[in-house]
Design a protein around this nucleic acid. Structure first.
Lengths: 210, 210
DNA sequence: TAGATTGTTAATCGATTAACAATC
DNA sequence: TAGATTGTTAATCGATTAACAATC
């Protein structure tokens, strides 16, 4: 983990983009790329590209640039996309189901191992290769299976209670689609918030002001 | 639009959060709030709160703080949540449908006026109070109706073609859920990207490195 | 070797934080 | 009035950009 620590969020959030663009380049059979070219693709600067990459190691070669495959694989490793982070979905409604079906968790370093919902109607429904379980099975499941992260797709009102249960079951990592402020309740957790409505409001502001 | 210009993205992205928290405070019948208290809620600093708000005007009162209702209404106006930005959905699959059903567009300053899909199976299906239209109706619809923004929920491979059509129809604002790089193709557009997979990769990185 | 391009240090820029006079 | 808290200017911090020696 030597150099992996103390990386700023700005850099971390750029990593997935590097990874995506490098995958594309590789698919187009591009073998090498300079920081200047990569910067153009990233809408960034050559300096920033080199600074970013050098947070993790010297992956380039003077006078040559970076090997596309090589760099892609390094970033894949840095992002931990080959990991098997075990995730559960909380809230298998339209929204949660769409998220789960839309994404290829495996390619992102995760494996969905269970889906829970408190609606008896949904019990047993197929979802992402799994079967929706009743909310009451959560404790039993977590006792028997390692759970690294929870994807929260339940209405804000329900998040508090389920969060407390998850926390007491040892879950410390959350992908949160609700507006519940998890960080205010627990400080020793990792929370990645996705606030779609904030994003749409931002678009609204920008389209009418820029 | 006097003071509304030249606001940094950092500030803009915080506006929806101010708005959400102020709404909550109002629901809890809190009448006034100081920058210090608001900063606690925002996980920010009193200085930043005051700096942020003063980009748009002096909404507070010395010795008192800010009126919750008053400030909420100001930010609502700044964000343009009372507007009627006319949006269309492109791609009414599981994912697009879930997005549209999940959010209350009206409360966010938008009105969904049409949904399009190229799958004949979906034609006529009800969605968000509307009926899914065939992709081929896009030109006709845009000729007869003002369209301010498009929500792109189609696979990356299909974005290029639909984007060109939308651009030539005059649409310049995009809420983009695909990995297609719109900004590279057109520079005079406003794009708000939602990259869910990037977000999940970021969570993966953080949970294994922090 | 000469040309290209990195890795890294230094300079700049912008955003955040601190300080404090103004004032309710 | 005295206390509280803003609006705003100044200081600090961190992130981005520029520069250049190292080297492939």
């Amino acid at each position: 983990m030597s150099k992996n620590d103390g990386i700023s969020m700005s850099v971390i959030r750029r990593l997935p983009r590097y990874y995506r663009f490098l995958c594309e380049l590789d698919e187009r059979n591009v073998e090498r790329i300079s920081s200047t070219k990569l910067a153009q693709i990233m809408h960034s600067t050559a300096s920033q590209v080199r600074q970013d990459l050098n947070c993790f190691g010297g992956f380039g070669q003077q006078g040559y640039g970076y090997s596309v495959k090589g760099l892609r694989d390094e970033i894949k490793k840095i992002l931990g996309l080959d990991r098997d982070n075990r995730a559960i979905l909380i809230g298998a409604g339209n929204f949660g189901a769409a998220i789960v079906n839309h994404l290829d968790f495996e390619k992102l370093g995760f494996r969905l191992v269970a889906c829970f919902d408190n609606d008896k109607e949904k019990l047993g429904a197929p979802l992402g290769g799994l079967t929706v379980r009743d909310d009451s099975e959560l404790e039993g499941f977590c006792a028997e299976n390692r759970v690294d992260a929870a994807v929260l797709c339940v209405p804000k009102e329900n998040v508090g209670r389920i969060l407390d249960r998850l926390y007491s079951l040892g879950v410390r990592n959350f992908w949160n689609f609700s507006h519940y402020d998890i960080a205010s309740r627990y400080s020793d957790v990792v929370v990645e918030n996705v606030h779609l409505s904030d994003s749409l409001m931002t678009l609204g502001y920008r389209m009418n002001n820029l």
